[in-house]
């Protein structure tokens, strides 16, 4: 019984070289559609007040998180002869972050975009900035 989809798949592969015929269409294996899982809200008692809004975040503080695959949001941007290191997805006080970064490495040349939370650094500084993040965050 459980071999049946596999056999059908083999059959489909053999008729793959043929153009879409009724035989091929009838042997197509349909994958089941994923059902929506309801989000489980946590218990009220398990929430701390520091996890709620008004926890002081954004007043001289900021957050830079790793991406889904565990990389820092630091990228090299090459535009013709211009080379720029882009630090993306900075939440909170971005100007404070720029000051902190300059206090660690005073020779960096920064341009701050507070609207979308980006900082552009002149030149290829990807490894240096990633090293700072690795050691400091």
């Amino acid at each position: 019984m459980c071999l049946q989809p596999f056999v059908l798949l083999l059959l489909q592969l053999t008729v793959h070289i043929m153009k879409a015929s009724l035989v091929r269409l009838s042997t197509r294996v349909k994958l089941p559609r994923a059902t929506t899982q309801a989000f489980k809200l946590p218990e009220l008692s398990s929430i701390s007040h520091t996890q709620l809004p008004n926890n002081g975040f954004g007043k001289g503080t900021y957050a830079i998180n790793r991406s889904k695959f565990g990389n820092w949001p630091v990228y090299l941007k090459i535009q013709n002869t211009k080379t720029v290191t882009e630090i993306k997805r900075i939440q909170g006080d971005i100007h404070q972050f720029a000051r902190d970064l300059l206090s660690i490495k005073p020779d960096l040349k920064l341009t701050v975009n507070p609207q979308i939370g980006y900082i552009n650094v002149k030149g290829d500084k990807v490894e240096e900035i990633k090293h700072i993040f690795e050691t400091q965050i």
Binding site: N55, G56, T61, I64
Partner: peptide, 18 residues
């Protein structure tokens, strides 16, 4: 609003999650 705790030279804190 209260002050959040930070660590190291970078003033990293986490935004509200709930």
């Amino acid at each position: 609003a209260t002050q959040t705790a930070t660590t190291g030279k970078l003033n990293i804190a986490q935004p509200s999650s709930y």
